[in-house]
Design a protein around this nucleic acid. Structure first.
Lengths: 357, 357
DNA sequence: CTGAAAGCGCTAACAT
DNA sequence: ATGTTAGCGCTTTCAG
């Protein structure tokens, strides 16, 4: 019982009494082939419902036109939106994208990377998981000759000679904290993040530096690490609350963290922004529909995705002239109903006020 | 300048003074090979950093261990969550998933399907775009011998002999409308959907049937089609509002549509639920954080994804014994702060009340 | 237990 | 402009 055998070049060639090579060339628009022949080939191909076997093509051409994308999560606005952009941009360059989700799990991350190498993707974009510790896998990928680009989340410290496209995490959180200070808050907490990955490190750094610069004491018990998800926010707030001393405002390291804070506050009957205010890093499609509408530092997901693909393509086409280092994409402060001066709050209820950076 | 040449079976074989076949077998744990040999091969392989070339393997084995997944959107809770499940489940079966996003665009959909066939994926799961009109592509895929499974969104009418895993759209919307009626609303609108796809058709049908059954006149001007996204909800509400006669409650055909309704209501200063109430089909992670927390008919995304993969695997392994037809997955009514009896509303503010179906 | 031969479907280099 | 010859890296008979 042989498996369904597909139409091949040979079938088309046979029908036309020419060789497979001619057909192959014709189908790819090679200049060698005459117009008439080309037309005939195409006609027969479509009559037969021919579908080129990409595996064969890739194997032979030693080029897959595949791009690997590894992210820690997918069902979240930031990643969803970045992923969509990467897909679209890659397609413009005639590349298919293979998505892999690590679920913030280093083991899966390694395995995915191995699979991508195994598939001989032409390049890889990765946003590393929060728990990442061992970075040798990245050297291996590189040794395998596959261009690797870190996007948004980079191991800290970054592997030697790595290329990255990141968001201005430090600058963004400075914006956020300065806003909180401008409103008049002097007790400000920070929830989420960790030290393995740049985004946690830099955002928390921006927070502490800004406080220090203003001569405000940094209280370690108000810096609650613990990741980037909604649970981190929920648990983080709960820990803060149990300690008894709740700061007047908290800076959530990601949008999901802020969501968790909202949920926890609701559960504890803490009113936002009257009892405690919130501002966060990262936007979402529903940010403006929450009550109160959440103010944030927005990350330009589109630019992140576009730049990443652009640079990766560069790395694929000119492996030598890799510029290396990091492109940093600026952020933007979006003020809505949290973390705004109280009289302003009423005014802003309708549309968001945008402060360009 | 030859391209980076990877380690191959031959390299390992050479090092050990055996043939490539032996290595190939050893690496795959073929019983032919002795334990000692196996160990040696594995050792050398890992020393050399060998990574099997999956394209070559697939080409030769005429099996890709790839699964195609086509969805209209990704940056939305429902799809994000289904996608994640499909990835995980597929992995359990040793399958990689190739994701394609159609952006609700039929042309892209066709192209993606062609690409997947070209990659010789072993099976395809698709959630069709709302604008789908021509279903011949599905017959072609089938003719190419690739099992195809419709998930959630199926062309209406479904192609002959197709297999699908869907949600109980009709039953779910009956639940929603009955709830609205139970609260005492007699003027109920319906926003979103269209007639090309089952989910729109059936959800709207559930809405009209339930009203009729209760002897409530169905007012066509309160049934606003227009898709499944946030804009559809926003624009839909605006049209309703411009007409002047706003129903006491609206049923949003999807969660994003409800989000759009929230936004539009906010913009028009219509209070939910006091001025107009909302209930929708489809849940989200932030549903309970909206104000008021949104009541909905929830779709079990996990079960949807799991069932889909399970059945597709079945179809791949036993192409003959395709059962065909549709598996229908039941829904669940989740009441929060909208569309609940007014005195109940206060009581429910904290945690969600769940009514099992 | 191991290996030689053949081939998966396609492309690239080199004729003709 | 078209065809010939050789692989790409792996698996699958089928002999030893």
């Amino acid at each position: 019982m042989k498996k369904q055998s597909h139409i091949t070049l040979a079938d088309i060639a046979g029908r036309l009494g020419v060789s497979r090579v001619t057909v192959s060339k014709a189908l790819r628009g090679h200049p060698d082939i005459s117009d008439g022949m080309s037309k005939n080939v195409r006609r027969v191909a479509s009559e037969l419902g021919y579908s080129p076997n990409r595996m064969a093509r890739n194997l032979s051409a030693r080029k897959s036109h595949l791009l690997g994308l590894v992210v820690p999560k997918i069902a979240h606005f930031f990643f969803g939106s970045v992923i969509e952009t990467v897909y679209a941009k890659a397609l413009e360059h005639k590349y298919e994208t293979i998505l892999m989700v690590s679920h913030e799990n280093e083991e899966q991350e390694v395995q995915h990377l191995q699979t991508l190498v195994s598939m001989r993707v032409d390049g890889i974009i990765i946003s590393v998981s929060a728990r990442l510790k061992d970075t040798r896998i990245f050297d291996w990928v590189k040794k395998m000759g596959i261009p690797l680009l870190f996007m948004d989340r980079v191991p800290d410290p970054p592997p030697k000679g790595s290329t990255a496209v990141i968001v201005d995490d430090y600058g963004g959180s400075v914006l956020a904290i300065e806003q909180a200070l401008a409103v008049g808050y002097t007790t400000i907490g920070c929830i989420g993040g960790d030290r393995n990955v740049n985004i946690g490190r830099n955002r928390v750094q921006g927070y502490t530096d800004t406080l220090k610069r203003q001569g405000i004491p940094v209280r370690e018990e108000w810096i609650i690490a613990g990741g980037y998800g909604t649970e981190a926010g929920y648990n983080g707030f709960m820990r803060l609350h149990e300690n008894g001393q709740v700061p007047r405002c908290v800076f959530a390291v990601t949008y999901p963290v802020a969501l968790g804070v909202y949920a926890a506050a609701k559960a504890r009957n803490i009113r936002i922004p009257q009892d405690m205010d919130v501002i966060c890093f990262g936007d979402s499609d529903v940010g403006s529909l929450l009550t109160p509408a959440l103010s944030c530092v927005s990350q330009p997901t589109q630019r992140l995705g576009e730049e990443s693909v652009r640079i990766l393509m560069e790395m694929i086409d000119h492996p030598e002239s890799v510029p290396g280092g990091s492109r940093v994409i600026p952020t933007e402060l979006i003020l809505r109903e949290t973390c705004v001066a109280s009289k302003g709050a009423a005014v802003l209820s309708g549309e968001a006020l945008r402060v360009r950076n």
